[in-house]
Design a binder for these strands. Structure first.
Lengths: 199, 199
DNA sequence: CAATCACCATACGCAGGCGTATTGACTCCG
DNA sequence: CGGAGTCAATACGCCTGCGTATGGTGATTG
C-alpha cells in the first residue's frame, strides 16, 4: 500500500473516463484530456492501462455489471409486488443519482445516454449495450409475465416500456418529474388491459 | 453556370457532411475527412463555407426543414383519417428511405440517431433538435386531439408515441419489421381506451 | 544502504485536423 | 488578348491526441 498522496488506482482512471464521457460525450474520452482533469500526466495512465481500448473495455465491464445486475438486485431484494417493481424500476432508471455501486457511480441519465451514443459507432461498446439491453428487457418482460401477460405480450410491453424510458429521457433533458409521470401513465395503460393484440 | 466536371456546390458539401455523420457519427464530421471522401481538397470547402461551424449550421437548417415540414406536408397532402395519418407517420419515420426531399435525403434512421447523438453535447445542434421535436410533437398531439382525446391526453400520448419511436429505433438496429409492428401495437393500445388517467 | 519495485513526469515522434495564404486553372466579359 | 471572377489544389503553421521511451522519486526489501 503506497502512501505519498495516495497513488491513483485503475478505478480512478475508469471514473475519470466516465466523468469525461458524461460531461463531454464519446469525443471527450481522450487520455490526455482526462489526465489534465485529474491533474496528473498520462504517464500514469499508461502504467495502469495498455491503451485507450483497454480503458474503454474496463469502463464497459463496469457498466455492464452496474447497469444490469446491480439495478435488478436492488429491485429484487425488497419485497414488492411485480407491479410495484415495475414502477420502482422506472423511477430507478430515470432517477439513478442515489449513492450506489460503491463509488463507481457516475451520473445516471447523462451517462446512459452518452454510452448509447458511443455504442452507435463503436462495435465493442455496442456489444456491451446489447447485453445490458437484453438483460433488462428479459427482466422487465418477466415482471409483466408475473402479472399474467403471455410471452408475446410481455416482450412487447417490455420493449415499449423500455423504449419509452429511453425516448422520454431524450425528450426531456430538463424536467425530470414529467418524465416519471409519463412513464407511470404508460405503465398504468399497460396494466389496465391485458390482451387485445390486433392483427 | 460553370462546366468543367460540374463544380461542387454548397449542397454537395452538406450532403457530404450528412454522409459522414451517418456513417461515422459526429466525430466523423471533419472537413478533411469529408474532402477525401468526395475526392477533392479542403480548399474547395473553405470557398463555400467560412468554417466547420458554418457547415454544421447549414446541415441543421436543412434538417430542420426536412425533418418537420417535409414529413408533415407529405402526410397531410394525402387524404387520410387522423388514425391513418398516425399509422402512416410511424411507418414514415421508421422507414424513411423513399426518394424524397429532392436529393438531400441522407439515410433516415441512422441519420436521425446521429443527429440526436450530436445534439447531446452541442448547443446549436440541440437547439435544432428541440425545434424539430417540438414541431413533431405538436403535430402528433394534434392528430390525437382530432381523435377525441383531450389536450393533456393528446400531449401525453404524443410524448409516449414519439419516445417509443426513438427508443425502439435504438433497440432494434437490425429488424425493421418488428419495429413497425411494435409501434403499431402501441398505437392500437392508445386508440382503444380514451381516458383513464390515474392520479 | 544499495537494489528493487511501484508509480508518475517529461520529452519525443507521429498522425490528423483546423484555418489561412498562395497559386493555378478555367470561364466570362470587354 | 487581357483582366476579373469562380472554384479548387497545395503548402504552411498550429494544436491536440496517441503511444513509447526514459528518467525520477519515494517506499520496500534484503
Amino acid at each position: 500500500m503506497p502512501s505519498k498522496t495516495e497513488a491513483l488506482t485503475r478505478e480512478d482512471w475508469i471514473k475519470g473516463g466516465f466523468r469525461a464521457l458524461t460531461t463531454g460525450g464519446p469525443e471527450a474520452v481522450k487520455i490526455e484530456k482526462i489526465a489534465r482533469e485529474m491533474k496528473v500526466s498520462k504517464g500514469s495512465f499508461y502504467w495502469h492501462f495498455k491503451d485507450q481500448a483497454a480503458l474503454k473495455s474496463a469502463m464497459m465491464s463496469h457498466w455492464e455489471a452496474w447497469g444490469t445486475q446491480a439495478i435488478i438486485d436492488r429491485n429484487e431484494e425488497r419485497e414488492l409486488s411485480p407491479k410495484e417493481k415495475l414502477q420502482d424500476l422506472s423511477a430507478r432508471i430515470t432517477n439513478s443519482r442515489d449513492a450506489a455501486s460503491g463509488g463507481l457511480h457516475y451520473g445516471g441519465l447523462m451517462m446512459e445516454a452518452a454510452i448509447r451514443d458511443w455504442s452507435r459507432f463503436d462495435k465493442n461498446v455496442r456489444s456491451s449495450v446489447r447485453k445490458v439491453n437484453s438483460t433488462r428487457l428479459d427482466y422487465i418482460a418477466k415482471l409483466f409475465a408475473q402479472l399474467g401477460l403471455n410471452a408475446d405480450q410481455s416482450k412487447l410491453k417490455a420493449n415499449l416500456l423500455y423504449s419509452s424510458m429511453i425516448g422520454l429521457e431524450f425528450l426531456e433533458h430538463q424536467k425530470l418529474a414529467d418524465l416519471e409521470s409519463d412513464l407511470s401513465e404508460l405503465l398504468t395503460l399497460f396494466l389496465c388491459n391485458g390482451d387485445d393484440t390486433g392483427g
